[in-house]
Structures are given as structure tokens and as C-alpha cells.
């Protein structure tokens, strides 16, 4: 993850988008263990008031639920703007999925459309996919790392793929473009490996 290692100061304030779609205890606990100050982002003004350095779209809830909340609060436009400025962003699980155009989980609701692609139901041997699996990546910081997945849906192909995983079929486990990182797995539940990954992504 060389983009993450190129120098600049580690952000002190990490904003976690409040998607009102589930429990974020693990994520906050993880960010605090790493040493970040965390701020819950309920509305666009929270970003500036708190001088947020890096933004996280958490991995709880369904696609439609998360997108509805982002549009209702106007945070959808803020995230798109954030990405345009190439500020550090971390999407987790459904937080990766909403960066794309649409999802089979909630077909009528458009995603943020930052990246091109459609979230599809995965053909996992057992559903939902719950467990640890090994990444394949051209990046040594991700390749062969074993991380924790919880999902039924995913992106099968993307131009910004940084790592893939295979469970029944291959799908996208990580994407990266500049300072934008997103993971289909849950780094906050992936032990030391996960914490290391978060640190490197958010420090870019």
C-alpha cells in the first residue's frame, strides 16, 4: 500500500459516516485502539466543524438503507466531493458497494456512482459468506493476507481492483484509487492484519 506510506502526517480525526444502518461498536473500538480521534458524521457541516482528516463509510446495513440515509442528509454529495479532492476515504463492506452505480440487493436505488459497476449476489458455497479468507493482490501489503468477510453481495469486476478473493467464485476484495480505499472484508474484525491495513489507508 505504497500510497499510504508516502509520508504525510497521520490523520488525527477520523469521521465515521452515520448511516443509521447498524451497530458500529466494533469499528469505533478499532479506530480508538489504533489511536484515532473519532467523530460521528451526521450531516455535511460535521465535516468542517470537526476538521475531519479522513472519512470512513462503515460496513453495516443494506445498500438501499445506506444510500437513502446518505441522500437524506446530503452526505452523498459530500462524499463525491471528498473523493474528487482525493482526501483519505475508507469504505467497508456495504461502504465499498455504495461507491458503485447500483446493486442487486436494492435495484431501484442508485449508488454514489464514483466507480463503474454493479453489485451482484455472490454465488457462495454457503450463504451468507461468513469467515476468514485469503486475498490475492499485486500489492505486497494485501497479497495473501487473511481477513474476515461477511457478505452475500459483492462486485465481481472493477477497473480499480486492488485485491480479489475466491469463495465459490472470484470477486473484488479491495479497491484503490489515489487515497480512496475500500474493502469488501471487515478490517475492524480482521485482527492485527486489519488494524495494519486501516492505519496504512487512512494515513495517506
Amino acid at each position: 500500500m505504497s500510497a499510504g506510506l508516502n509520508g504525510s502526517v497521520e490523520p488525527k480525526v477520523v469521521g465515521v459516516i452515520n448511516t443509521k444502518a447498524g451497530n458500529l461498536f466494533s469499528l469505533y473500538a478499532c479506530l480508538k485502539r489504533i489511536g484515532y480521534t473519532t467523530v460521528q458524521i451526521n450531516q455535511p457541516s460535521d465535516l468542517e466543524v470537526n476538521q475531519v482528516d479522513a472519512l470512513v463509510i462503515p460496513g453495516q446495513g443494506r445498500f438501499g438503507q445506506v444510500m437513502k440515509q446518505l441522500s437524506a442528509t446530503g452526505l452523498d454529495a459530500e462524499i463525491i466531493d471528498w473523493v474528487k479532492q482525493d482526501k483519505p476515504l475508507l469504505g467497508i463492506c456495504v461502504g465499498l458497494q455504495v461507491l458503485f452505480n447500483q446493486s442487486e440487493e436494492d435495484p431501484g436505488i442508485p449508488g454514489l456512482g464514483i466507480f463503474q459497476g454493479k453489485v451482484e449476489r455472490l454465488n457462495s458455497p454457503k450463504q451468507p459468506m461468513v469467515g476468514w479468507s485469503k486475498l490475492s493482490s499485486g500489492m505486497s501489503d494485501l497479497n495473501e493476507k487473511i481477513v474476515y468477510f461477511v457478505n452475500s453481495y459483492g462486485i465481481k469486476e472493477s477497473k480499480v481492483t486492488a485485491a480479489t478473493v475466491t469463495y465459490g467464485e472470484q470477486f473484488v476484495a479491495a479497491i484503490n484509487q489515489g487515497n480512496i480505499w475500500a474493502f469488501q472484508f471487515h478490517p475492524e474484525k480482521s485482527g492485527d492484519t486489519g488494524e495494519e491495513v486501516i492505519k496504512q489507508c487512512l494515513s495517506s
Binding site: 458455497p125 459468506m129 469467515g131 487473511i146
Partner: peptide, 11 residues
């Protein structure tokens, strides 16, 4: 063994 190692690590 291939069956066991089918993608998820036995926990």
C-alpha cells in the same frame, strides 16, 4: 482436502 480448503478458512 480441496473440499476443506474451498475458500474459507476452517475456524
Amino acid at each position: 482436502l480441496e473440499q476443506v480448503n474451498n475458500g474459507l478458512i476452517p475456524r
